[in-house]
Design a protein around this nucleic acid. Structure first.
Lengths: 353, 353
DNA sequence: ATGAAAGCGCTAACAA
DNA sequence: TTGTTAGCGCTTTCAT
């Protein structure tokens, strides 16, 4: 391959009988400035479309940048500007569609605003959350989005010291930072209880996964129990497993719950478990809701396609993500925003006998 | 609140009768160096645990950093070191659990290696992919992970010029870059066809979503058709919709397909659609697989919990993500890696009459 | 409207 | 084993 140097950063090389231009060195503002015959700061202004410059200058700079294949180095830019256009997002799990939805909302909003999302998964482990926050902070993100309002003391301190905007998502009770967007999980639990009671269910069991880890599910359960207590009732049984929530687990636990306890209905920690329960009942030939009422939480799309649509509580995770991202990057946006939830009647909760 | 300055970067303030130390200025290596009584580069070495230093020095530096609450600035570090510890990951969708699985694998591996994942969603839009690559490149990531092997010409050129390692995921046929990990979608389609034929199905319909967008599903379909052709057969019908894949869509399209065409079995673009189809059949009282055989693709956990476990092809997305991340950050790792797939017999494909 | 120059906080040579 | 110094590529005053 024959080749000759061409300008400061390009190599002209002969390949297959044709000349190709290849870049050898990294193109910087200085190169663009030279090519356009202007100063570095002018290039910077044009690229960021900030400050003032003539239309003619802009065109020259832009075409120079274009033809050189200039890719701005945001590391340098952020360093000089004291802040990156990164937004860190921390979620406990990706297996659960709920968090994927939140990420979609976040991602969609950030994209339009020239920001980049950086993500991390905690597996519901506070220590992992701490480590993630620590790592993220090293990139001086514009903001950091947390799931839930329960965080380690150290995590909170690091965040406080960092002058980085923090937004808590998916829960509004007991928010640690001034910005949060979500709904009251206790209220959701209470709403579920009221609904089940209003439809005549009395002997109600609970099926859930690890309550020590999924603290929002625990809050819903508490709200549920408190509402029952108002009517002088209490849960007939609580069946949980130290495992991640899944359809399979829902199947197993429901079987376990029904076999052991004589319940008329089950309140599930979430829809995944509830769907598992429904499918088990289907296979076992148990009539839903005649023999067994099922109540979920989340309002997953899939619940609506079951032979009998799942009774559940729908939350708008994408919107929560979107709003959180907006709070994150708009300096004026903030506060505690409760976007509530909708009760979906469905057909898996109904009057007994 | 009474307050006095304390050292270079701290404010001593009296609040609630007690003195608190608050940071005012950002702590830098220089501050830590001064506090520890060593040079800046020594601090750098200790923090990165690279190069040599005495144990005594390390302890002094570490405790100084600790007590000052030093948080390294990776923007500066990456700028000086010419590369960031970021790995960009681009997926077409988050609604589909498949990609969430890939992200989990990536994320798990990166975490242990001190890297950070940056993610973006294309919605199956090549132009969006181009924009994402362009943005990510500005952060000089160590590597960039792409879904699939079909990318725009411009995207490929940008990537080629960038000296940033590229790994393609989820497909191995027609890889553009030297690193790829996944499986042959055509082979998966062919395997599905062989299985359905071996179980006696002949009049087979296809149900899928937007084939112009989900190119891997299109490849599976092609592999399926080619296998049928070997037996002198062809698809009885193809039912698709220009919409994102979902359980709901699967329900609708299956109904449409069964009503319009007299098919004995359906090959679905993926499990979400197949599960939708199964649930529709369940509600419609159609016997599966007696009257209608159903074959999915992906091997989602949920398919195994249906009253009749779904016949499908299982792929290990988490492992694909893990391997891609490993290729991304290990300089020596690379090449085209085919991790294949498993056929899950299930109970929704069976001999006819 | 534009340019020159001083950092941003760190790493990597090079000395010592 | 350590310290000194020169950048990394950009933004940002401050002049002009």
């Amino acid at each position: 391959v024959a080749s000759i140097f061409w300008q400061r950063c390009q190599l002209l090389l002969l390949r297959g009988g044709r000349w190709h231009i290849e870049q050898v060195m990294k193109i910087t503002v200085a190169d663009v400035a030279t090519a356009a015959g202007v100063g570095e700061s002018t290039v910077s202004r044009v690229i960021r479309n900030d400050g003032s410059f003539s239309a003619k200058t802009r065109d020259r700079v832009l075409s120079a940048a274009q033809s050189l294949g200039y890719v701005p180095n945001r590391l340098a830019g952020s360093l000089a500007g004291a802040r990156s256009k990164l937004v860190a997002v921390i979620v406990p799990s990706l297996t659960n569609i709920v968090f994927a939805d939140v990420l979609r909302g976040v991602s969609a909003f950030l994209e339009g605003a020239g920001y980049q999302g950086v993500f991390g998964v905690t597996d519901y482990d506070p220590e992992k959350e701490r480590r993630l926050v620590e790592s993220f902070l090293q990139y001086r993100p514009s903001a950091i989005l947390l799931s839930g309002v329960e965080h380690g003391r150290e995590t909170i301190e690091m965040l406080r010291r960092s002058d980085c905007k923090v937004v808590e998502m998916l829960d509004t009770e007991g928010a640690v930072f001034p910005n949060a967007v979500g709904f009251s999980n206790a209220a959701a639990g209470a709403a579920a209880a009221r609904f089940m009671l209003s439809r005549g269910h009395r002997r109600i069991g609970y099926v859930g996964h690890d309550l020590d880890k999924d603290l929002r599910a625990a809050k819903r359960l508490r709200g549920f129990q408190q509402e029952l207590a108002l009517g002088g009732l209490e849960l007939a049984s609580i069946t949980t497993a130290k495992a991640a929530s899944s359809v399979t687990l829902g199947s197993q636990l429901t079987q376990q719950c029904v076999k052991a306890d004589d319940v008329e209905a089950i309140y599930f920690a979430n829809d995944d478990l509830a769907i598992g329960g429904y499918l088990w009942a289907l296979a076992a030939g148990i009539d839903v809701p005649g023999d067994l009422g099922l109540m979920g939480h989340n309002g997953l799309e899939m619940g609506a396609v079951l032979p009998r649509p799942l009774s559940t509580i729908r939350t708008d995770r994408v919107e929560i993500g979107r709003m959180a991202a907006e709070m994150a990057i708009r300096p004026d946006a903030g506060g505690i925003r409760d976007i509530s939830f909708d009760l979906v009647e469905g057909q898996t909760i109904g009057r007994i006998g």
